[in-house]
């Protein structure tokens, strides 16, 4: 057989061997066998010296071409086999992601209570508007809860706040605060104006629980005392807050009201969050929902804490945190808030 014919045969056999490798591992063995140092091609190459110059040139080129073709074939096979191997591996890994069940329950995220989330959201709105956040005790003396707020002993206005009294000291002198307003007094007593603060916290009223009343609930009080603060600033602040918390299409209106600690006093209504002002059952077809009470700080309150009512003016407002949550999340029954049913807690 001529040398070129031998080379051609070697190529045929090598190509067959490469094509026959079943996997990457086998292929690597075949590659060593057909292209490695002991391969027939190398052997023929070593024997080139025995040929005449012309034949040597011809066979040399043939060997070179053959090697190139085989190498390309090997690369091609390697890619195919590796791809197939990867495909097989991945197929073996196949996972239906919708069949994942309780296996990863340990990874569940907890939830802040809806009231806490609401409180944070409210705090954040007011912090953004330049308010600090103040807190105070839940038990108070009659003085902080009533007298300093211009609600003297036995004043009929006290019937606005059904009070839990505590068996401490003289009868009816220590109580569970009925509103967060005592924090105003404590703040003003401790520091000099100006004040720009909101005061969230838990409050207590001796009322029977029902779908829209809790005996223990949460309020957020606001107080601004500064030079040149007017009713117009109060109205603007309340509107800015409502837009920021409830949304830009929610507006406020102020109506005259009565609170002993503010004068003038106002009730704040907001656009009904259910019907957006169109009128519905929730808002008794008025398009408005009651949200808050507010007003200009009464001079008697300034007197109680020793602030000069001629120099400083201020406004205060207060509303229910639970009620905000109720309005925003359309809670049919406020009692859901303190029943700690995990099916409720996990919703928010």
């Amino acid at each position: 057989m001529t040398v070129p014919a031998t080379v051609a045969r070697i190529e045929r056999e090598a190509a067959d061997a490469l094509a026959g490798a079943a996997n990457v591992e086998e292929l690597r063995g075949v590659v060593t066998m057909v292209l490695g140092k002991r391969s027939p091609i190398v052997r023929v190459h070593r024997e080139l010296g025995a040929l005449d110059p012309d034949a040597r040139r011809t066979v040399g080129k043939q060997l070179h071409d053959t090697r190139e073709r085989l190498e390309a074939l090997a690369a091609e096979r390697l890619e195919a086999l590796a791809g197939a191997a990867r495909a097989a591996r991945l197929e073996a890994d196949r996972l239906d992601l919708t069949e994942v069940g309780a296996v990863v329950s340990s990874m569940s995220r907890g939830h802040l209570h809806l009231v806490d989330q609401t409180r944070r959201a409210l705090e954040d709105v007011f912090v953004g508007m330049g308010f600090e956040v103040e807190e105070g005790p839940e038990t108070e003396t009659d003085w902080y809860n009533f007298v300093a707020l211009n609600i003297p002993l036995a004043h009929p206005a006290r019937s606005m706040w059904d009070t839990f009294f505590l068996d401490v000291g003289e009868p009816e002198t220590v109580l569970l605060r009925t509103h967060t307003s005592p924090v105003q007094i404590r703040l003003m007593e401790r520091h000099a104006p100006p004040f720009h603060a909101v005061m969230p916290g838990r409050t207590f009223r001796r009322e029977t629980r029902d779908a829209s009343h809790l005996a223990v609930f949460h309020q957020l009080e606001g107080l601004v005392v500064d030079h040149g603060i007017t009713f117009a600033d109060l109205a603007g602040t309340v509107e800015t807050f409502a837009n920021a918390y409830f949304g830009p299409d929610i507006h406020t209106r102020l109506r005259p009201g009565y609170f002993p600690f503010t004068e003038p006093s106002a009730e704040v209504d907001v656009t009904c969050t259910i019907c957006r002002g169109e009128g519905c059952r929730t808002c008794s077809h008025t398009g408005w929902l009651e949200l808050a009470g507010c007003g200009m700080v009464d001079p008697a309150v300034f007197d109680a804490v020793g602030i000069d009512a001629e120099e400083w003016t201020g406004f205060a407002f207060g509303f229910g945190i639970d009620r905000c949550a109720q309005m925003r999340h359309q809670l049919a029954d406020l009692r859901l808030l303190d029943e700690n049913d995990v099916r409720f807690l996990r919703q928010f």
């Binding site: 207590f204 223990v216 995990v342 807690l345």
Partner: peptide, 10 residues
């Protein structure tokens, strides 16, 4: 993974 609760003060 904890849920925040609100239990009675009274």
């Amino acid at each position: 993974g904890a849920l925040e609760a609100w239990t009675p003060t009274l």
